[in-house]
């Protein structure tokens, strides 16, 4: 089980949090995801055999949010 913390662009509204959480959670291999609204970070733990950091980043980008690091 791998864990990453992704720095996102500044999140503007609390509803973005739910959007990103729901979207990333759907990705297969993702164990848990928590989006920190105020620091605009996403904490994701996932199974590295089923998915990758890049795939998770892609999901978030597709939802319309830039991933900085």
């Amino acid at each position: 089980m791998e864990q990453v913390k992704l720095q996102l662009e500044q999140l503007g509204c609390p509803s973005c949090v739910k959007k990103i959480e729901a979207g990333v959670q759907k990705q297969s291999g993702v164990e848990s995801v928590e989006v920190l609204f105020n620091s605009s970070k996403a904490k994701v733990s996932f199974d590295e055999e089923k998915t990758s950091v890049d795939q998770i980043k892609a999901v978030i980008e597709k939802l319309g949010y830039a991933v900085k690091a």
């Binding site: 509803s15 729901a22 979207g23 759907k26």
Partner: peptide
């Protein structure tokens, strides 16, 4: 509309 539809795809209704 873009953000509204993104959310709707995840079954969320946003502002």
């Amino acid at each position: 509309l873009y953000y509204a539809l993104q959310a709707l795809r995840l079954k969320l209704m946003s502002i």
